[in-house]
Amino acid sequence: MMNEYSIVIAGVGGQGGLTLSRIIATAATLSGLSVKTGETLGMAQRGGSVQSYIKIGKKVRSPLIRKDSADALIGLEPLEAVRALRYIGPQTKIILDPEPVPTIFNLVGREDYPKIEDLLGKLMEKTRHLYIVQARREAEALNSRPSANMILLGKLFSINAFLPSDKIEEAIRLVLRRKADKAIAAYKRGATL
């Protein structure tokens, strides 16, 4: 593992970004590392933009991430991934579910959702490491819609094993308890995609 590893998770409230960050933080602690996470959420519990930051290392100071410096971006939604653009640099691995969640302005016909090609283009201007994973569709195929976050984590882990794999599974069990089996299945599925 490198000196420090930083992950941004960007999504919509209710997509499981905060749970994901808690699992990674727990796995880091189980691995004997220092960790800090932070979050930026809107007013409500679900439906608004949510960003989480996770930093893992020997001695992590702050939960925030400097511009252009994230090692990974887990994008649970494409518009929200682009909202996290400031953290992306040439080294950033982006794991993205490209399926849009329309905003309320889109739904009531006030504005159009951006063209998906434009959103992907913005991400690719900053890094060439863009991995597209149809996480929600895959999760639905596993009959476990809330596990899309775990599929993306599995994919990221298959590219960058930033922690010991058994610690991630142990952390999933600790955080999700009864729901852990489905999540671990999704996490393993993600690694194969």
Partner: peptide, 12 residues
């Protein structure tokens, strides 16, 4: 600054 459509939290 990136100009992006905002996503205010809706009622559930």
């Amino acid at each position: 600054k990136v100009n992006l459509p905002s996503r205010p939290p809706p009622l559930c």
